[in-house]
Nucleic acid binder design. Structure first.
Length: 873
RNA sequence: GGGCUCGUGGUCUAGCGGUAUGACGUCGCCCUUACACGGCGGAGGUCGCCGGUUCGAAUCCGGCCGGGCCCA
C-alpha cells in the first residue's frame, strides 16, 4: 500500500515555509485547539490521573517561577494523556489574603477602615477577577493544557463553602479549638500570623544595660519593661546566688517580679540576668509557661503601648523605647549600651517586625505522627525533599493559628450567644455564610437566647488552599471522594512547610487518608546572575519577554533542560536561544523528510534491509525506551536531551548524511530509507508533543493531517543487535574518513579515490558509504597486507582491574614488554611475579602505525577495522 | 548554631567506582541539491581543598573551605 500525504494539489514541501515562524504557528494553533480536549471525564473508564495543581496568588503577573512549575505539570499531563490516562489538570486561584487588601488600599488610596467591610471585599474581588483574567492569557499562550472546566476560585461561594464545611468538620472532630495563647502578630496588618509566615531579617540594635533594683540587666527591648513578669538567671551563676527566692522591683513602673532560675539563661550574654516579658520573643513564651508567670500586656494590636505602660500609653513601641531610655538616663540607671546584630522575626508580606501577643485565637491541633505517617506514604520527587517535611514536623512547637483579623478572607462560620456565650454554628446546608451578615435561624440551644455576636475573625488563606485537592476531587464532607487521593501534587520547595504540610494535615484530619500518591518538587528560578530575582537587583525576567522573543516552545524547553528536576534553575537566555535553534534544525529535518516523502509517498510495508536503515531503527527504539523511562521518573531534562540528541546527532548528522545519496537515486532501497525517515520523524513529533506542543503539532500536522496531541505515546520497538553494532561501526568509519578528508584539506564532497575497508566480517551497507564519501569503497574480510608497527598499548581497565586487583600494574608492565607479534596475538598465559596467570580477553588493544612496502597508502584504524585510502592521483 | 543541598574547561551543565557529557563562548576549515539560525574539526579541565577506603575515586567515607535554600 502506498499512501501519499494529503497535499491539496500542492506538494507538501512547497507548503512548508523555509523558516519556522513561531509567532504565526502559536497563534494559529491557539485558535484551533479546543478546551474540551483537555476536560477530565468523570464517566470515563480510563485510569484517572488527578493533579493537585497549585492555585497561584492572582497578582496579575504569572512569573517565571510559576512558568517553570506549570511547564513541569504540563509535560507530565500531556504525557499521561498520551499514555491513555484520564487526566485532570485543574487551574485554581488562591485569592484571599493581605497582598490584595494592601493593593486595593494603594490603588484607591484608602485604608480598610474607610469603607464598609462589604464594600472593601467587593473592591478586592474586582481586582482579583481582573488579575485572574490577565494571568489566564499567559497560561494559554504558554500552551498549558489546563482543564478549564475544573477551574476554581477560592473567593467564590462554591469554593469557600467547602472551606467552611472543612472548618465545621474539624471543629466537630476536635481538631479546631479556640484559646488565648501567645501568637505571632503583625501590628501593621493587625492580624495574627502563623509561624510559617514569619520571615527573619538581620537588623542592628542595641543591648541596653541598666540597674534593675540593684541587679544589672541587659535587654534589647526596654519598651517591654511594663510587661516584665520575672527576672531569670542561670542556677549555677555565682553572681546571683543571693537572689534566690527574692522578688525585685521593676524600675520606673514599680511592680514586683520574682527571680527565677533557668538553665536556658546564657550567663555569658549581657549581664547574665535577663528580664522575662510577655512577650519579647519565643523564649519568653517558654519561660512564661514553664514558670507559670503572670501575663502583662503592654503592647496592643496596633503596636501601641497599653494603659499598663502608664505615662507611655498610646506611644508606638519604637517611641516608647526612646522615651524609656531617656528616662533611664535621667534617673541615672542606664549604665551602658552595646551595638548588637540580631535576627528579628518579621511579617513575610510586609516585613514589619512581629510582636508576640496573647490573643484569643482559633487553632488547629497538630499531630506530628499522623502527618509524618501520611508523608511517608507519598513518593517524593526528588526523594530528599521529604527530609524538609520531616524536619519541619519534628520541631513544631505550637498549634497552627488559623484565625486572622482581616477582611478579605473566608469568614469563620460561628456566632456566640450574647447571653450565655455558647458557640453556635450554622447548618452545613446553609453554607456558605458570613456570620457578620446573617444570624442563626434557631435560638441558642443552651439558654434560648436570640441575640448573637458574630465571629469577626476570618480564616488564614492556607485554610482555603489546603483543601484544593479535596475540592477538585469532589469532597462533600461525608467520606473520601471516589477519585481521592489525587495522583500527584506539583509544587515548589519553598512551600513544603506550608502548602504541602497543611494539605497533608487537612487530608488526614478530614478523610483519614494521604492527599496524593506522589509529590513532585520543583526548584526556584534564579536570575541570570545566580541570585533570587528581585526588583532591587534588576534581574527579573518576565515570561512575556521570552514569549515575544523566542516563543512558548523555547521557554518550555528551557524549563525542561535548565536543570535536573527539583534543583534550582538559573534563568539563562543561552538555553532559550539553543532551544529555538533546535526548532530551526528540526524544522529543516521536517522539510527534508517531507521533500523525500513527496517524491513517491510512504510505503508502509516495504522491507527494511539496509544496514543504515536497520541501525537507525535500533537507535530509535533505544531512545524511545530511554525517553519513556525518564518521563515516568519526571526527569524532563534527561528526556528532552535524549530526544534532541537523537534528532540532531543520530538522525540528521549521521543517518541522513549516510543515506542522502541513496535517497537521490531511484533504487528500490530508497523506499526503505523513506519508511525509516517517516518512522523516526513521527516518533520524534510524538515525543516532543509534551514539551513543545505548538512545534510538534505543526510538524506532525503537515504529514498526518491530524493532531499529535491525540496520538498515543510512541511504543515502537526494534531489536537488531547486529545492526546496532555494525551501524555504529559504519557511522564511525564514515566519520573518521571524513575527518581524514578534512585533515588532508579536502572538501567533504571531493572525490577521494579508492577506500578499502578490512572488517572482520561482511557488512552490506547498500553503497551508502561510497556515496557519502564520494569514493570507490571496497569492503573486505581478509587481512590487509600491511606492515604495522606497534606504537602504543591501550589497556581496558574495566577488564584488567577486576582480574588482577593489586597486581594490575604488574600485569600492565608485563604486557608492555611483549614483542609486537605477541601483542597482536597475545599468549594465553603470562608470568607474573613467578606465577603463570591467564591473559583475559579484551584486556588491551595495541595501537598501530601502518606502512605498505613504501607505497603511498594512508591507513585509518577504527577499532579492529582497518581502512586504507588510496587517493586519486 | 542546626538541617538539606551544591561546588566539574571562560560561563552554565550531565555523570555519581573504571582514564570527563553537552550547551554557549572561542579558534580553524567548509555556502556539499533540508538547514551558514548550518556542517566538520581544534584549543581549553590536577572534576573546591586535605586525608582515607580501593588495583583504580569527579564518583564512596571523614575533615576543612566556599555558595544557596530552609529553620533556630
Amino acid at each position: 500500500m502506498i499512501s501519499r500525504p494529503m497535499t491539496c494539489g500542492m506538494e507538501l514541501s512547497d507548503q512548508l515555509p523555509k523558516t519556522y515562524e513561531f509567532a504565526k504557528v502559536e497563534e494559529r494553533w491557539q485558535n484551533r485547539w479546543r478546551d474540551e480536549d483537555f476536560y477530565f471525564d468523570r464517566n470515563s473508564k480510563k485510569p484517572h490521573f488527578i493533579i493537585d495543581t497549585p492555585p497561584p496568588y492572582p497578582t496579575g503577573n504569572f512569573h517565571v517561577g510559576n512558568a517553570l512549575n506549570w511547564c513541569y505539570i504540563d509535560f507530565f499531563a500531556r504525557y499521561k494523556r498520551m499514555r491513555g490516562f484520564n487526566v485532570m489538570f485543574p487551574q485554581g486561584w488562591d485569592c484571599h489574603g493581605l497582598p490584595t487588601e494592601v493593593k486595593v488600599e494603594e490603588i484607591n488610596n484608602i485604608t480598610k477602615n474607610d469603607v464598609s467591610r462589604e464594600e472593601f471585599r467587593r473592591m478586592c474581588r474586582e481586582l482579583t477577577i481582573k488579575n485572574i483574567g490577565q494571568m489566564r492569557q499567559t497560561l494559554r499562550r504558554m500552551a498549558f493544557s489546563v482543564d478549564w472546566s475544573n477551574e476554581y476560585i477560592t473567593m467564590q461561594p462554591e469554593y469557600f463553602k467547602k472551606t467552611q464545611l472543612s472548618f465545621l468538620r474539624m471543629l466537630k472532630s476536635g481538631y479546631i479549638y479556640q484559646s488565648e495563647h501567645p501568637v505571632n502578630f503583625c501590628t501593621r496588618c493587625e492580624t495574627a500570623i502563623a509561624f510559617a509566615e514569619v520571615a527573619y531579617d538581620e537588623r542592628d540594635t542595641r543591648l541596653n544595660y541598666f540597674d534593675f533594683d540593684s541587679v544589672e540587666i541587659a535587654t534589647t527591648r526596654p519598651e517591654l519593661l511594663a510587661a516584665c513578669v520575672a527576672v531569670a538567671v542561670h542556677p549555677d551563676d555565682t553572681r546571683y546566688q543571693k537572689l534566690k527566692g527574692k522578688t525585685l522591683k521593676v524600675p520606673i513602673f514599680g511592680h514586683l517580679v520574682p527571680v527565677v532560675r533557668d538553665e536556658a539563661v546564657d550567663p555569658a550574654f549581657g549581664s547574665g540576668a535577663v528580664m522575662i516579658c510577655t512577650f519579647g520573643d519565643k523564649q519568653d513564651v517558654h519561660w512564661w509557661k514553664q514558670h507559670n508567670l503572670a501575663l502583662r500586656k503592654a503592647i496592643d494590636r496596633q503596636g501601641k503601648m497599653t494603659a499598663l505602660a502608664q505615662k507611655y500609653e498610646g506611644m508606638t513601641a519604637a517611641n516608647c523605647r526612646k522615651a524609656i531610655l531617656s528616662d533611664m538616663e535621667e534617673k541615672k540607671i542606664l549604665r551602658k549600651q552595646e551595638a548588637l546584630g540580631q535576627r528579628v522575626g518579621t511579617c513575610w508580606r510586609c516585613k514589619t517586625p512581629i510582636e508576640i501577643l496573647s490573643e484569643r485565637q482559633w487553632f488547629i491541633k497538630i499531630k506530628p505522627d499522623e502527618i509524618l505517617d501520611a508523608a511517608h506514604q507519598i513518593t517524593w520527587y526528588p526523594e530528599h525533599m521529604l527530609r524538609r517535611m520531616e524536619n519541619w514536623v519534628e520541631q513544631m512547637e505550637w498549634d497552627w493559628c488559623i484565625s486572622r483579623q482581616r477582611i478579605f478572607a473566608t469568614p469563620i462560620p460561628v456566632w456566640f450567644c450574647k447571653k450565655c456565650n455558647e458557640m453556635v454554628v450554622p447548618d452545613e446546608n446553609d453554607l456558605p455564610v458570613d456570620p457578620t451578615l446573617t444570624k442563626p435561624e434557631q435560638a441558642c440551644p443552651k439558654c434560648g437566647g436570640k441575640e448573637f455576636a458574630a465571629e469577626k475573625d476570618v480564616l488564614d488563606t492556607w485554610m482555603d488552599s489546603s483543601i484544593s485537592v479535596l475540592y477538585v476531587t469532589g469532597w462533600d464532607g461525608h467520606s473520601s471522594p471516589e477519585i481521592f487521593p489525587a495522583q500527584i501534587r506539583p509544587q515548589g520547595h519553598d512551600i513544603i512547610r506550608t502548602w504541602a504540610f497543611y494539605t497533608i494535615l487537612r487530608s488526614v484530619a478530614l478523610t483519614g487518608n494521604r492527599p496524593w500518591d506522589q509529590i513532585l518538587i520543583n526548584g526556584m528560578v534564579l536570575g541570570q546572575d545566580g541570585f533570587k530575582m528581585s526588583k532591587s537587583r534588576g534581574n527579573i525576567i518576565v515570561p512575556e519577554d521570552i514569549l515575544c522573543k523566542y516563543g512558548a516552545d523555547s521557554l518550555r524547553q528551557w524549563a525542561a533542560m535548565g536543570a535536573t528536576t527539583g534543583s534550582d534553575i538559573m534563568f539563562n537566555w543561552n538555553d532559550v536561544v539553543a532551544a529555538s535553534r533546535f526548532q530551526t534544525k528540526m524544522w529543516n529535518i521536517a522539510r527534508f523528510v517531507l521533500l523525500q516523502l513527496d517524491k513517491e509517498g510512504i510505503e508502509k510495508n516495504v522491507p527494511v534491509t539496509s544496514l543504515a536503515d536497520r541501525w537507525l531503527l535500533t537507535r530509535l527504539s533505544n531512545i524511545i525506551g530511554k525517553v519513556t523511562d525518564a518521563m515516568e521518573q519526571y526527569q524532563f531534562d534527561v528526556a528532552l536531551k535524549a530526544i534532541r540528541e537523537f534528532a540532531w546527532d543520530i538522525l540528521a548528522d549521521n543517518y541522513i548524511e549516510l543515506v542522502k545519496g541513496r535517497l537521490y537515486t531511484k533504487d528500490a532501497s530508497r523506499r526503505s530509507a523513506c519508511l525509516v525517515l517517516y518512522t523516526a520523524y513521527d516518533a520524534i513529533c510524538r515525543m516532543l508533543a509534551p514539551f513543545t506542543p505548538y512545534f510538534a503539532e505543526e510538524c506532525y500536522f503537515y504529514i498526518n493531517k491530524t493532531s499529535v496531541h491525540k496520538q498515543p505515546w510512541v511504543t515502537f520497538t526494534y531489536d537488531d543487535p547486529q545492526a546496532y553494532v555494525e551501524g555504529d561501526l559504519l557511522v564511525k568509519i564514515v566519520g573518521d574518513v571524513r575527518k581524514y578528508k578534512h585533515d588532508s584539506g579536502l572538501a567533504l564532497n571531493a572525490p577521494l579515490g579508492r577506500v578499502t575497508i578490512y572488517a572482520p566480517h561482511t557488512i552490506e551497507d547498500a553503497g551508502d558509504a561510497a556515496r557519502t564519501l564520494n569514493a570507490d569503497v571496497f569492503w573486505r574480510t581478509d587481512t590487509a597486507k600491511l606492515d604495522r608497527i606497534v606504537t602504543d598499548i591501550e589497556f581496558n581497565r574495566s577488564v584488567v582491574g577486576p582480574a588482577f586487583r593489586k597486581k594490575a600494574p604488574a600485569f600492565m608492565n608485563a604486557i608492555r614488554v611483549l614483542s609486537p607479534q605477541e601483542l597482536v596475538n597475545p599468549p594465553k598465559l603470562i608470568t607474573l611475579e613467578g606465577t603463570e596467570v591467564l591473559v583475559p580477553d579484551h584486556a588491551f588493544t595495541p595501537k598501530f602505525s601502518y606502512m605498505e612496502g613504501g607505497a603511498k597508502v594512508d591507513v585509518i584504524s577504527v577499532g579492529d577495522v582497518i581502512v586504507t585510502i588510496q587517493k586519486t592521483a
